[in-house]
Design a protein around this nucleic acid. Sequence first.
RNA 1: UCCGCAGUAGCUCAAUGGUAGAGCGGGUGGCUGUUAACCACUAGGUUGGGGGUUCAAGUCCCUCCUGCGGAGCCA
Length: 541
Amino acid sequence: MCIRRVGVQFRPARLPLKKREGTPFALESPGGSVGRPASAGRGRTRRMAGGELASRRLPFARAGREAAVSTGTVRLKPTHIANTSSLPSMLRNSGDLGTMPPSSGRPPMKDPVITISQLSDHVEEQVTLRGWVYNWRKKGKLRFIILRDGFGYLQCVVFRPNVDDEVWEAATQLTQESSIEISGKLIADERAPGGFELQVNQIKILQITEDYPIGKKDHGVDFLLNHRHLWLRSKRQHAIMHIRSEAEFGIREYFQTRNFTLIDSPILTPAACEGTSTLFETDYFGEPAYLSQSGQLYLEPAAAALGKVYCFGPTFRAEKSKTRRHLMEFWMVEPEVAWLRFEGLLELCEDFLSTIVSRILDRCAVDLERLERDVSKLDAATSKPYPRIDYGDAVQRLKAEGVEMEFGEDFGGDDETVLAGLFDRPVMVTRYPADIKAFYMEPDSEDPTRALAVDVLAPEGYGEIIGGSERSADLEHLERQIATHGLPREAFDWYLDVRKYGAFPHSGFGMGLERFVSWMCGIPHLREAIPYPRMINRLYP
RNA sequence: UCCGCAGUAGCUCAAUGGUAGAGCGGGUGGCUGUUAACCACUAGGUUGGGGGUUCAAGUCCCUCCUGCGGAGCCA
C-alpha cells in the first residue's frame, strides 16, 4: 500500500516547490476526454512526435506499425462531475483498499484516507485523498484542483490566506495528471461539481507530471489510440471499461447460477475450427499452430461430459477487416448445452440477452449517463420474447424496403441495420441457407437446404451480436460436410468422436463481447469497447 | 485485396496558384468561486517523402509512404 514502494517517484526535495530553472512545469488542464465518433470527423493525418515507434514482429502477426494519424476528432462534452456517492459507485468500491492502514515503515497519516466513492460518509471531516490532478484552474488567490482517484472526481479548493506557503506553492505548481495526496475538510457545497468540495490544508506531491499528451481539446482517433494507455484515464473510457467489466461479471454470473460449468478452451489450436476465416499462425515446436477463432468445437465434447458448459475468452481472426465491427482480437462467450434443441436455443438467447441488458441498466446508470446513452432505446431489450423472423421472410422484408439481394445470399452490414431497424429490440433471424453457414450445423428437417441457425441482430445498427445453431449429431452428415468444405478429416477425428460415442442433440451460440458492449454504450466503433484494441495496422500499445 | 477520403505548429484545424494562421497546450503577468474559467503578452513550421508543371506550389500533376472510412469475411 505504500506508494513509495511501487515505483512512483516521490520527491520530498520538491516540496518547498521552487520552480527549477530551465524546466518549467507545465500547467496543463484536464485531460483524457474524448467523445465525438470518428464517423463525423474530418480526417487529418499527423506524425507522432519522436518519429515512428519501433515496429514489432511476432511469428503470427503483422508488424505493429505506428505512425499516427487520425480521422475524425473526438470532442469532449463539458465536464460533468458526477455525484459519486451514488449507490452503484458505492457498491463498486465496497472492497476498496483506500482505507487500509498504512504499511509499517511509513508514518501513519493523521486523517482517514478515503476515496471519492466514500465522500458522503465524511462530510465536515478532515480527510486525505490520493489521486491524480484531472484539471487545475487558478483565479487570483484561489486554486481549484479537480482530483481524480479512479472512483470519481472531487473539486479541491486552496485559498491563499488559509494555507502555509508550501501548500500554496504546491497548489500553484500542479499540472494535469500529477500524482498527489491531498488533505482538508470535506464540505457539501452546491457550487462544486458533484456537490462536495475539499477545503485544502495540505498537499503532498508525489510527482509533477510534465507534458501530459492528452489535453482538454479535441484529439484524433489515431492519436488517442497511440496513447490508449493514457486515454483510459478519461471519463468516457472509464465509463466504458466499467460497463464492460460489469457485462463480463454478469455473463459469468448468468451461467454459473444456471448450473453451467466453465470450460476454458485452448488458445493454441492445431487446425482451423471452422475452416473459413484466416487464422494467426505461429510456430509450435516446429509444427504450425493457430490462435483460436472459437472455442465451440472444444465445448461440444465438454457438453457430453458436463451437460451445460460455456467458455469465455479471447478469440483471434486474421481477416484484414477494416470496419467498425471488427477487431483482430476480441472476446467471445460461448455456451453449449446438451439435449437443447433449436427452439430452446432461441429461448436461451433471448433470456440471456435480456438478463444482461437489465443488469447493465440497473448497475451502470452513472456510466450510461456519462456516455449520454439514450437508455430508452435499451428498455425494450430487457423483456422477452424477442421477435423471430425466418431467413426467407427477412429477405422478403429487405426487398420490400428496397434492398437489392437474392435468396441464398448472406446479409451485409447495411442489410442487418435495415432489418434490425424494423424492430425495437434484438431480432432473431432463423433458418439460414445451409450453404452460407458453418459445416457443423443441423439441417432443418422440413427443408434440408436450410440450417437450424440463428443470428441475433441488435438494434441501432450494431448488427450481429450472437450467432448460434443446433449442432448436427449425424456422423455421416458431418463427414460429408467436412469433405464438402475441403477440411482435413483427420484434424476432426476427436470432434467427430462426439458423434461416435453417444451422439446427442445439442445447441449453442457465441456472443461477441465488444459488440455487446458497444451496443450498451452507444459507441460507434468496437475499438473503444476493449482496453487495448488489436486492429489491422495496430499492435501498440 | 478492392473502392473512397485524408496527411500543415505538441494537439485539433484554417489558408482563390501570390507574405503559412487560429484555438488549445507551453512560457510570463493579472484576477476571492472557477466549471474545457477568463484577460494581456509571448515562443513555437523542411506544410508526410521524392519527382514534375509554373515567374510563383500547402494548393495543380505523377509516384511512394502512412492512416481513416467502407466492401468482402465475420462475432
